[in-house]
Simulated assay, not measured.
Amino acid sequence: MAKRRSLEVPSSDALQRMEEEFRRETPGPRSAVAPIAQIAAETAAIHDPRPPEARAEAARDRAEAAAFRDAQGRGLVMLDLLLDEIEPDALVRDRMVIDAAELDELQLAISRNGLRLPIEVFPRPGESRPWGLLSGYRRLMAVRALRDINRDGRYDRIKAVARDPQAMGGTFAAMVEENEIRAALSHYERGRIAVIAAQQGAFPNAEAAVDALFPVASKAKRSKIRSFALIFEELGDMLKFPETLREKDGLRLAQALRDGAEAPLREALADHAPISADDEAALIATTLDTLAAPAPDPRKGGRPKRTPGPRAVASSGFIIEAQEEPDGWVIRLGGPRRADRALVDELVRQLQYLLDKPD
């Protein structure tokens, strides 16, 4: 039988030596930095002759530059631009008419109190004027007028905010949204800018442009805008005072255009050349009054007119009526009594017999 070994409890000194050996042989906690990142950082530090403090400052500069670009893109940074750096006609403007009195009033306010609200611009890389005007056309025109009057350098520059038009739904949408908020557009101006946006390829057609440019408008309002877009498409080159068209008159004109009245309207406008908005409205109304009313289109809804047919009263009390409709005849069986299914089946068989008989 094997002799058992006796176990001895290690001394405190022996335990301490064992713990120190265990610590030396066991790796510490894993670093939070990925090995490849740590190697890249060490390599960059080897090839970067700058001291650690300089490298840290450069990293802060890069972070601050990125934050500045982000703030600038979100419109949180004010720019001070030369007027000649801004192209006011980079976009076709939705606002057709600028009231001279309002412009003079704005010009006077800026000369007294400065420009309280900056304009909005978007970048045009590679262009002679690197910034395009997005919103603030009247403000820009007022400051330009002040520069031309004073010529002392006070109005050579203007405060502006840079925008990313695509982040705002596109340049046309951003411009329309700004004008809808600050100064309501007429239906004709809305329809006009929708057509122009479609013609310039921003949208596949005017219908889609209206939906995209006026997304919060009601269905009825968008329908009205489409009517005025049609007026711009067919008579925009002939009308001299289209922005004064009243809603009721514009909708009547659009319906006439849908019914084929473009040619006589263009002829009337070319022959008479109205000299005022009232003159033009009266000419259009007179022309529309003289046009013959078009034949109703059954596809546009409503109950078509029916031609009365023969009618007979049976001795049993049933009333037989025949009605002519666009697609054929309808025979109705009525009266004080209600026909049952068996009687109707028999009537159908009798009709078939009559129709099957040779001529």
Rank of each mutant, 00 (worst) to 15 (best):
P35Q: 08
G191H: 02
K300F: 13
H272C: 09
K300M: 15
G334I: 00
L7V: 10
R30C: 07
G132M: 03
V97M: 04
D148S: 02
F241A: 02
R306H: 09
V143A: 05
E8F: 07
G328D: 06
Q200M: 07
A314V: 09
A101I: 01
R341L: 12
I331C: 09
L117A: 13
P88V: 02
E42M: 07
L355N: 11
I275Q: 14
L257Y: 08
I98W: 11
S6A: 13
V330P: 02
L185C: 08
S227H: 02
L347I: 15
A101K: 02
L103Q: 13
A41R: 14
L140K: 03
L230F: 04
E102D: 15
E321I: 08
G75F: 01
R139N: 06
Y353S: 13
I86Y: 02
P336L: 10
P118N: 11
A56H: 11
A261P: 03
P88E: 02
A339M: 01
P123I: 00
A162G: 03
T244E: 14
P336H: 11
A322Y: 05
L7F: 12
Q352G: 15
G132H: 01
E189Y: 11
F241T: 01
A40M: 10
N179R: 12
M96L: 14
E177M: 13
P274I: 11
R151A: 14
A65F: 15
D249M: 05
